[in-house]
Amino acid sequence: MIAGGCRCGAVRYTIAGDDLPLSYACHCHVCQRWTGSAFSQSVIVAEGTLTVDGPLVVYDQVTEDRVSTQRVCATCHARIYNTNTRRPGCAVVRAGTLDRSEELACVAHIFTAYRQRWVAIPEGVPNWPEAPDFEVFGRVLAGQTALR
């Protein structure tokens, strides 16, 4: 099991599996504003593998093409994960909430057109200036190196 939680400890979760998922960095302005930083780092897991205990505040962020359902700790307001109507069955977990986040491999960068100019994308790491093709992106996050 992979474990994680919020900063105050009120919310804890587990992800079924033994290996840490591969992570990615999103450099869009929405993620920059969400984190108050240069990017957000996340992992995508099957929603059914995620078990959450503790008080969550759940709300929908509605845009013209999707609904992103956000889950944050009701006590400390740390963002834990979200789901999205464009990708049913997937949960986007905030990488920094994982207990072993320092062990994560960041294997892709998206929305790099909006990245802070001091952020250098490592050579050879797949990256997209805007939203990636989800099928190709999914292969990268699954550890399949080919971007064909």
Rank of each mutant, 00 (worst) to 15 (best):
residue 34 W to A: 14
residue 134 F to Q: 13
residue 126 P to S: 07
residue 96 G to L: 01
residue 25 A to H: 14
residue 145 T to Y: 03
residue 7 R to W: 05
residue 71 R to F: 04
residue 58 V to N: 05
residue 54 G to S: 13
residue 88 P to S: 08
residue 99 D to K: 07
residue 36 G to M: 04
residue 70 Q to S: 08
residue 42 S to P: 02
residue 121 I to N: 02
residue 3 A to F: 11
residue 96 G to C: 00
residue 65 D to M: 11
residue 55 P to F: 10
residue 27 H to A: 02
residue 145 T to P: 01
residue 1 M to C: 08
residue 129 P to V: 04
residue 34 W to T: 13
residue 143 G to M: 02
residue 41 Q to T: 15
residue 79 R to P: 00
residue 19 D to K: 15
residue 111 F to S: 07
residue 88 P to C: 09
residue 108 A to G: 04
residue 39 F to T: 04
residue 4 G to Y: 06
residue 9 G to K: 11
residue 48 G to M: 08
residue 125 V to I: 14
residue 21 P to F: 08
residue 133 D to I: 04
residue 33 R to G: 02
residue 39 F to I: 03
residue 27 H to F: 03
residue 107 V to E: 10
residue 144 Q to A: 04
residue 108 A to D: 06
residue 22 L to G: 11
residue 99 D to M: 05
residue 39 F to D: 01
residue 111 F to M: 12
residue 37 S to G: 05
residue 95 A to S: 13
residue 123 E to L: 11
residue 131 A to E: 14
residue 22 L to M: 13
residue 133 D to R: 09
residue 32 Q to D: 01
residue 122 P to E: 09
residue 55 P to N: 14
residue 137 F to K: 09
residue 123 E to I: 10
residue 74 A to K: 14
residue 146 A to C: 00
residue 50 L to T: 12
residue 56 L to H: 11
residue 81 Y to C: 04
residue 110 I to L: 04
residue 138 G to A: 13
residue 24 Y to A: 07
residue 26 C to V: 11
residue 125 V to T: 15
residue 93 V to R: 13
residue 115 R to V: 00
residue 144 Q to D: 09
residue 84 N to F: 10
residue 108 A to M: 07
residue 72 V to R: 15
residue 46 A to K: 14
residue 138 G to H: 11
residue 127 N to V: 06
residue 141 L to A: 10
residue 136 V to H: 07
residue 47 E to R: 15
residue 75 T to F: 06
residue 85 T to G: 05
residue 54 G to P: 11
residue 138 G to M: 10
residue 60 D to W: 04
residue 124 G to A: 07
residue 28 C to L: 03
residue 104 L to I: 13
residue 5 G to L: 01
residue 27 H to K: 03
